[in-house]
Amino acid sequence: MTEFENKIAETAPAAYPDAAPKAGKWRKLYERPKHKLKSSGENDLKNSVLGFIPIIVLLIIWEAAGRSDFISKGLLPPFTEVMAQFYELVKNGILIENLGRSIIRVLAGFSMGALLGILVGTVMGWTRYIDKLFNPLISVLYPIPALGWLPILMLYMGIGEALPIAIIFICSFFPVCYNTICGIKNVDKNYILAAKTMGASNMKILKTIVFPLALPTIFTGLRLEAGMAWRVIIAAEMVAIPTGIGALMMKAESLIRMDIIIVCLLMLSIMTFIFERFFMKLEDALTKWK
């Protein structure tokens, strides 16, 4: 280690043992703290355990009601039978195949829609004349529900893999774009002025100040739309596409197979939960400073 590095080693704060140089790795000082500012830990665990209690109570009531004589098993199969059906659908590959198709459609449509939404939203939020030019168009198209586009898209594209992806793309693009515009515009102007007086170019200010500070708002949009994409894909598959979880539900409905319908609904709930959680975790990782 050089003399300068040694000096830093002596003064590295005790509260940040990671920052202490080890074998010349004094540059660790540049790294951001790994923990989030808000302390959580024990409380989070406690809350998670508490949150499971109503679910367990509901499952017990469901099981009891399904096994009682008050309701027909065809209308409400017990939880254990639904789980058995779930195992069966996984074993014969039907669930995996349909769920797989839905996942691919959501991932493809959502990633394209969200990425383009962030890109267009950033440009519109940052450049006033582009915002003035396109804002009326976005404002007109944004309120149209994604499923409202289905008839037009069916006529243009026909029934195929591109149709659900296009629906999810539309469902994701407008809200993510709108949230990104708001996030970029709402960054405190004083931060921008401060960065300017420090010699930063406009592009650098956007990249290093404005975009990172807009991330919490952008992520709110991403989180909500990740869940919405699943709701929309199920609806689209139920109406117009012969494969996927939504289509499986429609087939089960025609056979009056309540157990399969419930399995599909559980899958929808789990996938929505996983997608929303993914974006929550990603947001936490990218906005540790909050």
Binding site: A194, K196, T197, M198, I209
Partner: peptide, 17 residues
Amino acid sequence: EKRKTGYLFQDICLFPH
């Protein structure tokens, strides 16, 4: 950005992120 002036703002303006 080219005037090389330092500016200490009223509300501090440290970048929170």
